[in-house]
């Protein structure tokens, strides 16, 4: 006899008038266990068929995984992602604040920027920046109505790297602006009023009060954008920059080991994505600490020591 019925029997023995104490038996969930086992078997056999398949050219993958050209491509892809995302976040914040301005001209300018940069393919924007010299052979900066002007040949300023940073960064700014705007709008207006009533200026209340509370809303989609940028940045191959994917393509165009080299690129893309995901969840935990339960220990803090 198993446990539940013996408890019942004992209870019945002691007092006939009193209801027996119940022993709770959780639902067994055989279905779920079977499904999990089936999934493991399918996944396992799938992985086994890939790993054991000579056509994937695993020795070639190993040979090129740390190839110099692949490494320099990975480096370019990494720093281009970081730089364009930094530009995107800064520009996006400025645009979001402009879009929410009570001044009509300022908000229309911000919204027009969004309209243009979200409405045209980023590939076209990249090519446009790369060919800027064809439209403006010289770039000039100076004070109007004076002789204080400085002029420079466009091609010396807009190098392929600069064109890539501008093209991807300005485009990213438009997308980040909407993400940041939704975050700022999620913060209750009472927070700003409280900050004002304590004598804070608009800038200080934005920086100290509103933005930190908008972060939990802003971070997840920003993580998405960053991971997206990791791969969008491969578009720079059209302006003769050797990013991770393009480096792999250059190699397989000579040795025809297409699949192994694409696998090499994917391994690095996946590694970078894993790192970015880990960073994202750390930042999320940092900004989410005020949402934790009272008794949950604060496991760590990212930016502050106290």
């Amino acid at each position: 006899m198993d446990a539940p019925s013996s408890t019942l029997a004992q209870a019945n023995d002691t007092d006939a008038g009193q209801k027996p104490m119940l022993t709770y038996v959780p639902i067994r969930g055989y279905g779920r266990k079977a499904a999990a086992a089936a999934l493991l078997i399918i996944l396992g056999s799938f992985l086994f068929s890939i790993a054991g398949n000579d056509n994937f050219g695993w020795p070639v993958v190993g040979q090129y995984l740390f190839d110099d050209r692949i490494m320099s491509g990975l480096l370019l892809t990494s720093w281009l992602t970081v730089v364009t995302m930094v530009i995107g976040v800064v520009l996006g914040t400025i645009l979001a604040i402009m879009a929410m301005s009570s001044n009509g001209v300022i908000s229309v300018v911000a919204n027009s920027y969004l309209w243009f940069f979200r409405g045209t393919p980023v590939l076209v924007q990249l090519i446009f920046w790369y060919n800027l010299a064809a439209l403006f052979p010289d770039l000039s900066i100076g004070i109007p109505f004076t002789s204080l002007w400085y002029s420079v040949d466009t091609n010396t300023v807009i190098t392929p790297v600069m064109a890539a940073i501008l093209g991807l960064g300005l485009n990213e700014g438009a997308y980040m602006s909407e993400i940041i705007r939704s975050g700022l709008m999620s913060v209750d207006s009472g927070q700003r009023q409280a900050a004002k009533s304590l004598g804070m200026t608009n800038g200080k209340s934005l920086w100290r009060i509103v933005i930190p509370q908008a972060m939990p809303i802003i971070i997840p989609p920003t993580g998405n954008q960053t991971i997206g940028m990791l791969k969008t940045s491969s578009l720079v191959s059209v302006i003769a920059l050797s990013d991770l994917l393009y480096s792999a393509q250059t190699i397989y165009s000579r040795n025809f080991q297409t699949i192994p080299l694409l696998i090499v690129a994917c391994i690095w893309y996946l590694s970078a994505t894993s790192i970015l995901t880990a960073i994202q969840s750390r930042i999320e935990r940092h900004y989410g600490r005020s949402l934790l339960q009272a008794d949950a220990p604060v496991r760590w803090r990212l930016f502050r020591s106290s």
Binding site: D188, G190, Q191, Q193, A194, A195, K196, S197, L198, G199, M200, T201, N202, I209, P212, Q213, Y287, S290
Partner: peptide
């Protein structure tokens, strides 16, 4: 200008119906 208004507000405190405590701070 904003800064001078902020200065005036600094000595006039306000307590709100919905508390408006800064949720991200202890």
């Amino acid at each position: 200008p904003e800064k001078l208004i902020a200065k005036q507000r600094a000595r006039i405190a306000m307590v709100f119906q919905n508390f408006n405590l800064f949720g991200h701070m202890t």
